[in-house]
Amino acid sequence: MKFYRVIGILIIVLSLFGCGNATETKEESKIDEQIINDTYEEISEASKYSLETSNIILTVWDTAISKDFDFNSVFSYMFSGDIRNHEWSGLGMDTEGFSDFSWGSIAVDMNTFNSRLSKINEDKKKIDEMMQQIKGIENEEYLQTIGLLTDYYIAYTKIFNSSTNPTGNKIGFSDNLVDLSNELQETKIKIDMLVD
């Protein structure tokens, strides 16, 4: 009789441990899902900002060519943030930086471009850290979503690179930007379809 009582107690204890593990799994699953959702949202927002930045670069490039300014020097000033207190440089700058007279409404974006770059780099650092968390998710339920999220991250990284290090000529940069934007959008649609 004692033997059956001990077996019964063991069964109860084991079933309690089993319930506890199931609860942990549900909680872990919710945490994993939240990490995935947060990363997706962060990449979406950072991508928009990087695309906007690349479009500013394209507008500046167009304007520099049309005004016969040395656009390599223009970009050098913009990217370095070294735009104040210069004598007129032939780049449409005055002692306050890029002038509204020469550059129109884009001058404000050019004069604050360095702070824009700082935000882009901070966004990238944060997303890289979030993607490290994604690598730690072992729940098979999310494998397909994680695969698509990784593709989304790769597409975002390409846009990040175009906005922080423009290369080639203006036409090549413009065409590449369209391709990268399409790649990002296609990946986003795949993720949205999977989630819906």
Score class of each variant (00 low, 15 high):
residue 74 V to N: 00
residue 38 D to R: 01
residue 177 L to Q: 05
residue 147 G to K: 09
residue 32 D to L: 05
residue 132 Q to M: 05
residue 20 G to L: 04
residue 116 R to H: 12
residue 69 F to E: 00
residue 130 M to F: 11
residue 25 T to Q: 07
residue 4 Y to C: 15
residue 28 E to K: 13
residue 73 S to K: 05
residue 31 I to P: 09
residue 112 T to Q: 12
residue 178 V to L: 06
residue 99 S to R: 12
residue 30 K to V: 11
residue 59 T to G: 13
residue 143 L to C: 06
residue 116 R to E: 14
residue 82 D to Q: 00
residue 3 F to Q: 09
residue 50 S to H: 02
residue 168 G to P: 02
residue 83 I to H: 09
residue 153 Y to E: 00
residue 154 I to P: 07
residue 143 L to D: 12
residue 145 T to A: 07
residue 196 D to K: 14
residue 36 I to G: 09
residue 111 N to D: 02
residue 98 F to R: 02
residue 123 D to N: 15
residue 183 E to A: 07
residue 185 Q to H: 06
residue 154 I to Q: 08
residue 170 K to T: 05
residue 36 I to L: 02
residue 141 E to Y: 10
residue 178 V to Q: 13
residue 189 I to K: 05
residue 172 G to Q: 04
residue 128 D to R: 09
residue 132 Q to E: 14
residue 122 E to F: 08
residue 146 I to Q: 03
residue 178 V to T: 04
residue 139 N to V: 06
residue 59 T to L: 15
residue 121 N to I: 06
residue 121 N to L: 12
residue 104 G to D: 03
residue 69 F to T: 00
residue 127 I to S: 06
residue 145 T to R: 05
residue 38 D to E: 10
residue 36 I to S: 05
residue 89 S to M: 04
residue 70 D to P: 15
residue 2 K to I: 15
residue 5 R to F: 07
residue 74 V to D: 15
residue 31 I to D: 15
residue 51 L to S: 15
residue 87 E to M: 06
residue 109 D to R: 08
residue 28 E to N: 14
residue 150 T to H: 02
residue 60 V to M: 02
residue 155 A to N: 13
residue 133 Q to I: 10
residue 81 G to H: 06
residue 86 H to K: 11
residue 97 G to A: 01
residue 7 I to F: 11
residue 107 A to S: 14
residue 189 I to F: 07
residue 155 A to M: 11
residue 143 L to Q: 15
residue 6 V to E: 15
residue 2 K to A: 05
residue 16 L to F: 13
residue 53 T to R: 09
residue 101 F to D: 14
residue 107 A to I: 09
residue 181 S to W: 10
residue 120 I to K: 11
residue 92 G to M: 00
residue 139 N to M: 01
residue 118 S to M: 14
residue 174 S to F: 03
residue 40 Y to D: 01
residue 122 E to V: 05
residue 166 P to N: 00
